[in-house]
Design a protein around this nucleic acid. Structure first.
Lengths: 252, 252
DNA sequence: TTTTTTCGGTTCATTTATTGAACCGTTGAT
DNA sequence: ATCAACGGTTCAATAAATGAACCGAAAAAA
């Protein structure tokens, strides 16, 4: 493992730890020697990637990533790249299409293009989508390695409707189906009478960062539509992934 | 120079370079060997801090900083920490107080608390403040090393009013005055009839990230007020800096 | 109170990763 | 056809990273 990889591991570990941990705690979590961890922290701090509270001696994420994120987003605005694809899918299906992103541990709706049908599904932008009860959630989970999947799901699966999948084994099967087909499908799992299909948007390291989904009243989503929209949503997700991360796709 | 420092230098350099440079260009800019630079780029890419376009082989800033920035901002929201201080200054002066941040190369107004006077200064949130023509801009420049200062100012100084400072030598003197007093002052440099004083907000490495400013009609800003508000705005900027970066202040 | 543990941080002989001049194959300009 | 510049790789020489043991302080346990 290269020194740089160790430093970046320390940074990511710190970011994913709750609160403001101390040196020993960070070292234990990254599984690196205390002295090594300390040197990494010192270097990272020099560049503002982390900060240390002088009174408690604890570490926290710094401001440097915020600056870099600004630069990144001003040059490659995610929505600018993705929205045309979303709108095309919405036009082709004439159903409500929504885009979600995985932000600080939760899947949040960041854009919705509504269907023009009188009877249509409306989703508020910003809505948090439960991972086990929505097509988007299942799609997201389906692109995740098993370990991360279980960590995210936690212990209890909340019930939203009579049709919400709360059985662990059924959920596992649903996710396996989604992996196999390349898209997920859900009927009334979160909102009664709403059916949707969804596919994961991946980054260039094949980790999911969000989803695209088509949602409509269940009366317009019979098995042939599921298959048709499913294929379309999967294709759109692939297009989005390619448009945003260019041609470079890495394995695993 | 540690390996980690080299890697982070490569990252920051890439972020600050325009367009999508190639390996050799990056190596020249960071002043590191091509082989070394390449290894850093490969490591950074593994963690998503940078991306490479497979067709052009060029590098660009990646998505990882965006994720970290989300975590940082959700835990330490800048505005939550700063706004109470801004409001206190507004209450004490009963003049319009505004906060700006340096975002992707420009100084942008991110918050305004208006005076209750009938005759008051109104600034739209989001307004871009020219660096050479506003008290905020001068304050920001005054906290910057000479090299960065000149890089930011560019070649020509735009004229906004008859009083806009467009002479390089006068601007230099104005900045020196600001450095000496700890706050900057400007009369009608951007908007006619508006006077303001401002001070820089620093990060824990003493680099400016934004400014606090008091703005009012020039009729209410005679020399004694400049001095009084100047001292207050400088103190507020220091308080903000301390509140956001805790007790840890580093030299240099 | 005294003792023990845990903490953040440092040291330095040992180990290991980093380094960079020279190199290769490719591309694009002359 | 030639040359120059590119991205990327190689490997002996080298410089940096490593981590068990350590320090003093502070918290926890006795």
């Amino acid at each position: 493992m290269s020194t740089v990889a160790k430093a970046l591991s320390v940074l990511e570990t710190l970011a994913d730890m709750p609160g403001e941990p101390g040196l020993t705690q960070i070292a234990r979590t990254v599984k690196l020697d205390k002295a090594t961890t300390h040197r990494m922290l010192v270097e990272l701090e020099k560049f503002g990637f982390i900060e240390q509270d002088l009174t408690t001696r604890c570490y926290r994420l710094g401001n440097a990533p915020v600056r870099l994120a600004h630069i990144r987003e001003s040059r490659y605005p995610f929505l600018d790249v993705v929205l045309p694809q979303i709108r095309r899918l919405a036009a082709e299906t004439n159903e409500t299409v929504h885009l979600s992103r995985f932000i600080s541990g939760r899947l949040a709706t960041v854009h919705v293009t509504e269907s023009t049908h009188a009877n249509r599904v409306t989703i508020p932008s910003g809505a948090i989508l439960p991972l086990h009860a929505t097509a988007s959630g299942i799609a997201f989970l389906s692109a995740l390695p098993m370990a991360e999947r279980n960590a995210l799901l936690g212990d209890a699966l909340e019930t939203f409707t009579a049709q919400t999948v709360v059985s662990r084994t059924i959920l596992e099967q649903t996710i396996r189906d989604a992996v196999e087909r390349g898209y997920s499908a859900s009927q009334s799992g979160f909102d009664l009478g709403v059916s949707s299909v969804a596919a994961p948007i991946l980054n260039n390291r094949n980790h999911p960062i969000g989803t695209v989904a088509v949602a409509c009243p269940e009366t317009r989503m019979s098995p042939p539509e599921i298959e048709k929209y499913g294929a379309m949503v999967a294709q759109t997700a692939r297009d989005v992934t390619r448009a945003y991360w260019g041609t470079k796709q890495k394995a695993g």
